[in-house]
Nucleic acid binder design. Structure first.
Length: 822
RNA sequence: GCGGAUGUGGCGGAAUUGGCAGACGCACCAGACUUAGGAUCUGGCGGGUAACACCGUGGGGGUUCGAGUCCCUUCAUCCGCACCA
């Protein structure tokens, strides 16, 4: 038999599958559908091991489901807009479109050598007009429903490049390109109102039992719902009021000062014409020169300044000083807080630093009554004290009672706050989907009519070395007429965040060639939701949250009939080398293309799935790859060695000798194991090890003097069928070699025969006081008394029991006996 | 600091519901075949012992006939988030 020539075999079958359109699917109401999707890649130029792992996992699921009778949709596309393409244009003078399309071609070629069962007819790229036309359509729909709006927002601004920077372009508070210090600048930006969906995004996590608990927890924390109340504090000697939000209304009598965020709109007014004005302005100036990143990333010391003004606590009429401090954030709550240093650690630290009073209003069991004795804030449970008629209430009861009182007396009301903020989607970049908006002097902000989509990205543009968007200089793009009045108008030159493009692509795959609408209703109704979504955990928050938001919105406007896009989610671990993530800078990158050239795709796929369960990090090992390669070679020789036997005819029904019976037993036990490992647990590593066991047993059976052709055929075919989702090419080749005409891809997944799993005897472990002392063979189904008698015949057991009294027999049928003896 | 994980042979990992710790693979050792072996096949492989005994799942304690698995406590590593009122 010729040797295992993976290059020949893999090329041959890839071509065969493609020519026969094996993986092209269409809606078929007569069969259950299964939509398996891997997160589509950014076309950076080359496949890396993380991709290989992702697609290998997806392909096993897809092939397994197909063999189990499902109509499987398994598409692939490209998340093709984004900053790297623009950087390449600036640095190397290559147009982003050319760079991106070349990368797609290369990665597609690499991907095809992996032999994944993609329906390439559905390929899409978000940077193509036929796709981004509908990204723009999504924007228009959101706009029509009041969910897209403009407001001023702080951006990173490089004063030297005169351009906006993405967070990742800011390194150590400086511009990555020119190293100038980055400033904050307020610019008008487009937002999507995802906060309108905060509660549903939170509640509907309950609908997702097929998601990892850890991802749901991350999403819950990100949405960050907190309950409390909101009330106004009046400024002494003025009509102005400042709203505050608190989750601890029970501590309202412990307020000893109030704090505003530096950006709070009332700050400047408060400090006007007071002796403190100079100090306040100095502080504000200092804060303004700190970028967002600097303010957020370092362990900033709490710092603040007194405004000179006082606010009135509405519960007790007390006047408390108003401060400004860096630890209060403008974009959470109202940007102002009531400070209760005795019961909030941040307030406590601040009060100690600036000598502000600390008043205990919650009495825990060992809490000192005097604030001066506290060493840290007391945040636990207890009874209210120093709180007028609320004294004696517990924290829980006090919260409710204080809010009730506030509501009754018109002071404040129950309120819910979310950490989640609206989604800033505008980018001052070229390589993205243009925002379909026109600014008219007469009509103001005018959306581009649907029939005028797409707003095409002009191709003939020049890139500034500063990184500034070239769209600002293409007059043929921005000079336009108003769709409303026909007058002169200017087109929006901002483009959309690439997360917008990836928030609906799973729907587009259902009918990717529609040109009048984003997707055909019948197609999405048939295919959606995605049954199994697979990707890196780094997308656990943003991408998945945005995709869920879009799906809910499309459901609301009746374009989708599911409320959640992804029924089951698998988050795969990273591929590591020498304990850390593969990266160019560390020089520990292993190229998939090299591995596939050296060992073949079947080996690469097999190793990456065998080395670790998919949700855990995987340590790359060159020796391990060799091992996988050797295994496939063993399978190759094994099947070759059995070719003669397989030509004979032996029916399974005839009387079997012990070795043959054991081979048949193993075959069916392994079918059961592999099926359950793939279906219930995604434990591909143990599924593969089981397949190896079957192969080992078949190997040993080669020495049998009179091999049973029927049992051998069953075992060999099972081996190939079970292995085929992992390493499809070699299995296809061997499948044909043993005489089959049809592709192994069209075969049904094997079913195990319960009767073959029945053994006449089972081995039972005999323990004495929990320690294994012997093993006995027991007839299957023996009653406890029989087992007990048999144990007491074992010489080793009797020897151990000498001088002891048996107190108890614990029998786990078919497994174990534990004799308790003193 | 908060939140989430993870700790098992020389290594990757297995043990699915509290029931034989170390499946499967790598590395290593010995042997066979061989002019040769970085191919292939056979056997061995947690520590310990001549062989048993015994010890062993990060450490300490507990529950149980029985604990890698459950409870308490502690340590280490990794990841995520950064003052969320």
């Amino acid at each position: 038999m010729e040797k295992y020539d993976f290059k020949l075999i893999e090329a041959k079958w890839q071509q065969y599958w493609e020519e026969h359109g094996f993986y092209q699917v269409s809606e078929d109401p007569s069969r259950p559908k299964y939509y398996v999707l891997e997160m589509f890649p950014y076309p950076s130029g080359n496949l890396h091991m993380g991709h290989v792992r992702n697609y290998a996992i997806g392909d096993v699921v897809a092939r397994f489901k197909a063999m189990n009778g499902y109509n499987v949709l398994h598409p692939m596309g490209w998340d093709a807009f984004g900053l790297p393409a623009e950087n390449a244009a600036i640095q190397h003078g290559i147009h982003p479109a050319i760079w991106t399309l070349a990368n797609i071609e290369n990665m597609k070629r690499q991907l095809k050598t992996m032999g994944i069962s993609y329906d390439w007819d559905r390929e899409l790229a978000t940077c193509k007009p036929d796709y981004y036309k509908f990204t723009q359509w999504m924007f228009l729909k959101l706009y029509q429903h009041g969910l897209a709006y403009k407001k001023k927002s702080a951006v990173n601004w490089c004063p030297s490049c005169q351009t906006v920077l993405a967070n990742e372009q800011v390194v150590d508070n400086s511009c990555e390109r020119c190293e100038a210090v980055v400033e904050k600048k307020q610019l008008e930006q487009w937002f999507f109102k995802i906060t309108d969906y905060a509660q549903r995004l939170l509640d509907d996590l309950e609908l997702l039992p097929g998601w990892p608990e850890k991802v749901k927890t991350m999403q819950r924390n990100w949405i960050g719902r907190s309950e409390g109340c909101q009330f106004d504090m009046q400024i002494a000697g003025s009509d102005e009021r400042i709203s505050v939000f608190t989750t601890r209304p029970d501590t309202v009598f412990g307020v000893t000062y109030m704090v505003l965020a530096p950006e709070h709109p009332l700050v400047e007014k408060l400090a006007q014409n007071t002796p403190e004005a100079a100090a306040v302005n100095e502080f504000l100036d200092k804060m303004r020169h700190l970028s967002d990143i600097a303010r957020a990333s370092t362990e900033l010391e709490k710092e603040g300044v007194f405004t000179g003004a006082y606010a009135i606590n509405p519960m007790n009429g007390e006047e408390v000083p108003i401060w400004i401090a860096n630890y209060v954030l403008m974009d959470y709550g109202t940007g102002a807080i009531m400070a209760v240093p005795a019961h909030d650690q941040r307030d406590f630290e601040f009060a100690r630093k600036y000598g502000l009073p600390i008043r205990v209003v919650i009495q825990g069991e060992d809490t000192p009554l005097d604030g001066a004795d506290l060493t840290e804030a007391y945040e636990g449970d207890g009874k209210m004290v120093n709180s007028g008629l609320f004294d004696g209430l517990s924290v829980e009861a006090g919260k409710a009672a204080v809010i009730d009182y506030m509501e009754k007396n018109g002071i404040g009301s129950r309120a819910v706050n979310y950490r989640l903020r609206d989604w800033l989607i505008s980018r001052q970049r070229y390589w993205g989907a243009p925002i379909p908006i026109v600014y008219c002097q007469e009509c103001g902000i005018v959306p581009v009519p649907e029939e005028d989509l797409p707003v095409l990205l002009p191709e003939d543009v020049e890139f500034k070395p500063s990184g500034e968007s070239p769209l600002n200089y293409v007059s043929s793009f921005y000079e336009t007429t108003c769709p409303g009045c026909g007058g002169k108008a200017r087109r929006e030159t901002d483009t959309m965040d690439t997360f917008v493009c990836s928030s609906w692509y799973f729907g587009r795959f259902c009918s990717p060639h529609e040109d009048k609408q984003p997707f055909a209703r019948a197609a999405v109704d048939y295919w959606m939701p995605v049954d199994q979504y697979i990707g890196g955990v780094e997308h656990a928050i943003l991408h998945l949250m945005y995709a869920r938001f879009f799906t809910k919105f499309l459901y609301d406007i009746k374009w989708l009939s599911c409320q959640e896009p992804f029924t089951n989610l698998l988050t795969q671990g990273m591929v590591l080398k020498d304990g850390s993530k593969m990266s160019k800078s560390k020089g520990n990158v292993v190229s998939p293309e090299d591995i596939i050239n050296t060992y073949g795709a079947d080996t690469a796929r097999l190793f990456i799935l065998f080395a670790s369960p998919p949700d855990r990090d995987l340590e790359w090992s060159d020796a391990g790859v060799e091992g996988a390669y050797r295994f496939l070679n063993r399978v190759w020789r094994l099947v070759g060695d059995y070719r003669k036997v397989l030509q004979k005819q032996d029916s399974i029904g005839s009387e079997l000798d012990e070795a043959t019976r054991q081979l048949r037993f193993k075959t069916h036990a392994i079918i059961k194991k592999v099926t359950e490992d793939i279906e219930n647990r995604f434990n591909f590593n143990t599924a593969i090890s089981a397949i190896m066991e079957l192969s080992n047993q078949l190997g040993a059976y080669r020495d049998h003097p009179r091999p049973h052709a029927g049992v051998v055929r069953e075992a060999v075919e099972t081996l190939l069928l079970l292995l085929s989702p992992f390493s499809p090419h070699i299995c296809e080749e061997l499948w044909h070699m043993i005489g089959h005409e049809n592709s192994i891809c069209l075969m049904s997944w094997p079913k195990y025969d319960k009767d073959a799993l029945v053994q006449s005897e089972v081995e039972m472990v005999v323990q004495i006081n929990g320690k294994v002392r012997d093993r006995i063979m027991v007839a299957t189904g023996s009653d406890d008394e029989t087992v007990r008698q048999q144990c007491l015949q074992s010489p080793r057991v009797l020897q151990q029991l000498e001088g002891k009294t048996v107190q108890k027999f614990i029998i786990v049928p078919g497994k174990l006996v534990n004799i308790v003896a003193r």
